[in-house]
Amino acid sequence: MEAQTWAVLTVLEQTPGVDSARALTEDEQRALLEPWFGPELPVDDLPIPRLVEVVETTEGYDAEGLRQRLAAEAPGAVLDDHTRWRRPLVEAATRLRLMGWVAIGLILASTAALITLAAGSALAANQQIIRVLRLVGAQDNYIARAFVRRFTLRALTGAAIGTGAGMIAVALLPRASTEGAFLTGLGFAGLHWLWPLAVPILAGVIAFWATRIAAFRALRDLR
């Protein structure tokens, strides 16, 4: 088996597209099988094949060509190319990520639309007050400022509360376990915890501009 492993490693070393290749040690193989066979697994007594880990380069290798070379130089060696089953998962993950971005875009757009509507309603409800302010010499900027301040602060506060609750919920999600249960280990790591803090700021900025645009549009109709 040692000779065959050596032959496999030699082939891999010469294969374009292979970044690195190494045979797993017995301890590493035992650790891989431990969840299924327990800690007392007699690796030496079982006909367990030697595992070789292959890391490909960005360009990747020619799987079919490598398979043929292995068949010729190390008969019995099997190339288990994970990309066969990993590719659809990667594609699904990419689509999920895209959907995530689209969802964020939709949330931001609907936030802006909601704030514009709310500001428009508030402006309509306060039409008489705005008229009096204009009559006593208030400039549009002064009137708009009062509405912009109120809506920006509300959006900022709401988003901060929501973000806080969301971060707590994410922190309470199940941690990644050695058993590797599905959908565990979701969440933020390290500095990624700073990302959600952008949400209240973004909400505030959107509220500021949405209210300002709505206010100036409403004031345009009032001399």
Binding site: R134, L135, V136, G137, A138, Q139, D140, N141, L219, R223
Partner: peptide, 14 residues
Amino acid sequence: ARDDVARARQRIGV
């Protein structure tokens, strides 16, 4: 302009 109207109204007490 609208701001000029506002400034003029600051000079006119109604």
